[in-house]
């Protein structure tokens, strides 16, 4: 499926973390999450939009996020996701691991 040149595949599993992070700031529907990640990364991170949905399912299944039907800003019915307490814990864990990893990579690269 390597059709997308800018697809974020450098850090597998990081999509979950990005979603959790996004939802820890505000409750959003699927499209909103994609938009937020793209905008807040200065359009550096372009995720394959479709892959968001399986990820959302997985996160919900693990009990980290909760989806509820609500209405978007332009008045369309949409599933609005919010992070759960377990999700916040998971986010904290993943953030720590991510920090460790990037630090390690930085050290290897002689940037530290």
């Amino acid at each position: 499926m390597g059709r997308k040149p800018k697809k974020n595949d450098s850090l597998p599993g990081s999509l979950d973390m990005l979603i959790l992070r996004t939802l820890s700031l505000r409750d959003l529907h699927g499209y909103g999450i994609v938009q937020f990640i793209q905008q807040s990364s200065g359009n550096e991170l372009l995720i394959e939009e479709g892959s968001l949905y399986p990820a959302l399912q997985r996160l919900e299944l693990n009990g980290w996020i909760d989806g509820d039907w609500g209405v978007t800003s332009n008045n369309r019915r949409a599933r609005i996701y919010k992070i759960t307490a377990a999700g916040r814990k998971q986010l904290a864990l993943e953030t720590r691991q991510y920090a460790k990893l990037t630090l390690a990579i930085a050290q290897v690269m002689g940037m530290e």
């Binding site: 699927g30 499209y31 949905y53 369309r76 599933r79």
Partner: peptide, 24 residues
């Protein structure tokens, strides 16, 4: 529970994706 509600969920997922495509 998810398994039980699979048919309904699938329809909802489709709706979610349609919305996404429409907004994009």
């Amino acid at each position: 529970l998810y398994w039980k509600e699979s048919a309904r969920r699938e329809a909802l997922l489709r709706e979610e994706m349609e919305l996404h495509l429409a907004e994009r």
